[in-house]
């Protein structure tokens, strides 16, 4: 059963992404409101994939990506960034620090489900 961690400060987006992820068979969604909350949840539950926003209070998505990549226990977990920042340099920056994919908002749910499925299948 894949555990998908959704890191998003907006309750609307969090609910929307969780809603979409529940359509992936046997998946279990863990919700976190920012980077710190995400790391806390990761220490207590096994996570197979992370979906994270960039702009969040306390700890943003990019900091979370670099911390996850720097940790030998978590470094292999695929990370998909979902953000309003649609500029090419933002995308390059996120990918260069270790994000696997970059989806600008507003997201197409089918595209997100396909992408998540492709990472889970690889695992």
């Amino acid at each position: 059963m894949p555990n998908i961690l959704v890191v998003e400060d907006s309750p609307t987006m969090r609910q929307l992404i969780s809603f979409a992820m529940k359509r992936i068979p046997n998946s279990h969604v863990i919700e976190a409101t920012d980077g710190v909350d995400a790391l806390k949840k990761m220490s207590s539950e096994k996570v197979d994939l992370i979906l994270a926003d960039i702009n969040m209070p306390v700890m943003d998505g990019l900091k979370l990506v670099s911390l996850v990549r720097g940790n030998p226990t978590y470094k292999e977990i695929p990370i998909i960034i979902i953000t309003t920042e649609g500029a090419e340099e933002d995308r390059k920056r996120a990918l260069s620090i270790g994000a696997n994919s970059y989806l600008p908002k507003p997201i197409q749910t089918q595209e997100l489900i396909r992408l998540v499925n492709s990472y889970l299948t690889k695992q």
């Binding site: 907006s10 309750p11 609307t12 987006m13 929307l16 309003t84 908002k105 507003p106």
Partner: peptide, 11 residues
Amino acid sequence: IVLEIVINLIG
């Protein structure tokens, strides 16, 4: 919430 919807869902 209205702001969130307009940013995140409409863009």
